[in-house]
């Protein structure tokens, strides 16, 4: 169980003139599934780093406001303590993997060794994650022989194997095929049921909307809007915001005007029945 909070949080990387994040106020409750969406350069990844404590533990810069985990400020934790509680999956699998291990099994074990799990515990965890992600046919392979999509699944495995309370995933589906994406959806759905706090940074919003409790739209380092999926998109439609809408919503709005987002086929068909053909 873990709650994360940013209050009046701003951050500027060392050597940079501009704040990448500006006055962010965000509470991610225990067990809540949060989706962060926005254009490139909006600050999504930096927000992920801030929620994980990579900022300020790894990236230095000017920081205003506070980051809290379970009501304690990040500075009261060591980076290792944060690592055990908050898992972070990087956008590029090459950043995630150590690449000093010659098989995937060793790579997954390395994650556990890194935070000090005993051999027995490590074996048990690796076995479980291999089964969960259906990786048994790959575990004796060298990571350099795998496709980028396969590596992305492995990278996720190196985090899931630690079973952290908070999971931050930065574009985990960008290289995945539809089957693997659906599998990821199922894992995340299970993890949500287990009470994990999940933060997903994604452009492929449609695959996950069903799980989302809290949607955060970022624009140029600030929160443009946040709330439930329905609320945020309803507000956005009503004022004609130029943002990424769920794909059915975007498709239907090409032929009719919508006052609420359309998220599934049934709602789409209902709307389509009402559409009068026009010249």
């Amino acid at each position: 169980m873990a709650q994360l909070e940013l209050s009046n949080f701003s951050f500027r990387y060392q050597g940079s003139q501009d704040y990448v994040l500006k006055d962010i106020n965000l509470t991610l409750k225990s067990g809540q599934f949060t989706l962060i969406n926005g254009l490139d350069g909006a600050g999504k990844t930096t927000l992920g780093y801030a929620l994980k404590g990579i900022i300020p533990h790894v990236f230095e810069g000017t920081l205003l406001g506070e980051q809290r985990l379970n009501h304690k400020v990040f500075q009261e934790y060591t980076h290792q303590e944060l690592t055990k509680i908050i898992g972070y999956c990087f956008q590029n699998p090459w950043t995630q993997l150590s690449m000093i291990k010659s098989t995937l099994e060793e790579e997954l074990s390395f994650s556990c060794e890194n935070v000090g799990y005993a051999l027995e515990e490590t074996r048990f965890r690796v076995k479980a994650i291999v089964r969960l992600l259906d990786l048994s046919h790959l575990i004796h392979k060298n990571p350099i022989h795998l496709s980028l999509g396969q590596l992305q699944t492995i990278a996720l495995g190196t985090i899931l194997v630690l079973d952290p309370d908070v999971l931050i995933l930065d574009e985990p589906t960008s290289q995945l095929d539809p089957l693997t994406r659906r599998r990821l959806f199922n894992h995340l759905s299970d993890l949500k049921k287990q009470g994990k706090t999940i933060i997903l940074i994604e452009h492929n919003i449609d695959d996950f909307l069903e799980l989302v409790d809290h949607l955060v739209l970022l624009e140029k380092g600030s929160i443009l809007d946040q709330g439930s999926v329905i609320d945020v998109y309803t507000r956005s439609l009503s004022i004609g915001r130029d943002i990424q809408y769920p794909s059915l919503t975007a498709l239907l709005s090409t032929i009719t005007s919508l006052d609420k987002p359309i998220l599934n086929d049934n709602d789409a068909l209902t709307i389509l029945k009402g559409v009068k053909s026009h010249d």
Partner: peptide, 22 residues
Amino acid sequence: RLSLMAKHQLCTTHQEWIELWK
């Protein structure tokens, strides 16, 4: 999927989709 379900016609592009509703 939607063009097939709603009108039993296959559209694969936006242009066809908009034509379909005209």
